[in-house]
Design a protein around this nucleic acid. Structure first.
Lengths: 266, 266
DNA sequence: TCGATTGACGAACAGTGTTCTATATCGAAC
DNA sequence: GTTCGATATAGAACACTGTTCGTCAATCGA
């Protein structure tokens, strides 16, 4: 991680430059890392590494995915991966790009742009859920991967169909992305926490576990000393009611309603 | 991290139980870990460990804080810490609790509940910024620490002063907490990225660095191929305009406006 | 067929969180 | 005042992590 380049500014510019190169590279086919026509099918490649990483994130959780675990599944040592992937951070970037490229956002219909927007955000969370662990890769990443850029582009199309002003479009993209990713990450941390205790169960039992925890948390809220927490103990039921979809649905409604309200008021 | 307890449900119940114990313990003075009247001032304690952890997070970033670095600053080995703190996760919990206890949310004024809410969220981010790295501790944590509970309690008071329905109150707390923490985490990751390259600078130069990156990112957006990204390239300036406060201010306005809109429409 | 490029890989380094075990220290009871 | 027992401390170690170095073998162009 330690660079020996001169100033931090230089390093930052170089980092951005790399990402730009990657963007244009993947978009127009001019790759820096030459694939070198692997006739023998078992050659390593960035694509295979990313694939294995995504698979392991789903099966064993983000934290369990290491350079060694990926290498082991590919039948090699960790050092071999570094010929195709610069480091763990770049691997996370590639994983994010691969997944986000699957998001499909509809062409804007000015009559139902808000419903389309809502559905798109729901779909984004659904995609994160299909590939657990991936959301953890996105935090703090400048969205310059081509797959992510396409998502932004098409989201903006929806917003503009709704007459949202430019500045609001731009900033809303950030807020919405952060919210969706945040929800996905929180769900993922919960999932991983129970994955470590019961490694045999896939995904259905996890729902049951979460119910148990919710029950416990509700009890805590309900039994809080009323003299210190009158509101919180009174709201024990609403605080813990609704499943993950209900809560996320409210958040999305909140964002969309806020967007409309801000646009209306100026 | 691996528990040997029977079922995952058991473990979950025990985890929640522990947190409840801690809540009531810190609230009413009956601590499980007896402080044992340390007359010699250089005795270890959970408080001192938390203090050092917060300090190191500020100075060297979240990732640089390890059990060893904390122990070293306290003039001991890492094993000694485990007598006062169960593990790294509990340490993060304690850090969060300590910091969040500093948040002051005003008594509700029904005339200006929305401005109070807005200001409270801004203050929360400001507090995270004063203690960089702390936000990273909060992801995926059930907010049962007493300090966090007080924040929730007082936020709810503001919301109810504005006539927000119970269910909206409860869910809004979650959305707002997640958003504020998410912004803080993203800022922190950026900060840490530049901290690693120029460890001598404190916080002012970082602003300049960020400006440089923003400039580069704007160039990327502006130079995207217009045939693939017409909207994104046209919005290059709005996408990258505004400093961190502007962007966060928009997000908060969005949340508050959405809350009012949802309450109004039912 | 020869030589050079380059992907693969074993070993190692400097870290991490955590646990075990022995030691030293302290409060309290006799 | 002395002894006893609980307990905080600390050294060493374990099983990991990401990453790098030097070497080796396979492949490709000439």
């Amino acid at each position: 991680m330690k660079h020996v380049t001169g100033s931090a500014a230089e390093a930052a510019m170089q980092a951005v430059g790399d990402q730009v190169g990657q963007v244009f590279g993947e978009l127009f086919g001019s790759r820096r890392t030459k694939p070198r026509a692997s006739r023998s099918g078992d050659r390593l490649s960035a694509d295979r590494i990313v694939e294995v990483a995504i698979g392991q994130m789903r099966d064993r959780g983000y934290d369990a995915v290491t350079m060694r675990s990926i290498a082991k599944e590919l039948g090699t040592g960790p050092a071999s991966l570094y010929a195709h992937v610069a480091n763990r951070a770049e691997l996370d970037q590639l994983v994010t790009g691969r997944i986000c490229a699957q998001i499909r956002i509809p062409d804007p219909d000015p009559e139902h742009w808000d419903a389309q927007l809502r559905q798109s955000l729901v779909d984004m969370l659904a995609l994160y859920r299909e590939h657990p662990g991936v959301a953890r890769c996105t935090m703090g990443m400048i969205p310059l991967q081509p797959g992510v850029l396409v998502v932004s582009e098409r989201l903006i199309a929806l917003l503009k169909a709704g007459g949202v002003p430019d500045q609001h479009c731009a900033w809303f993209i950030d807020v919405a992305s952060l919210y969706v990713a945040g929800v996905a990450i929180e769900e993922d941390i919960w999932r991983e926490r129970h994955l470590g205790q019961d490694p045999d169960e896939g995904g259905t039992l996890q729902h049951v576990e979460q119910e148990v925890v919710v029950e416990q948390v509700r009890n805590v809220f309900a039994n809080l000393p009323a003299e210190h927490f009158p509101l919180l103990s009174a709201l024990a039921v609403p605080m813990t009611s609704g499943d993950a979809d209900d809560r996320f649905g409210f958040g999305v409604d909140l964002l969309v309603a806020g967007l409309k309200a801000l646009a209306a008021q100026g």
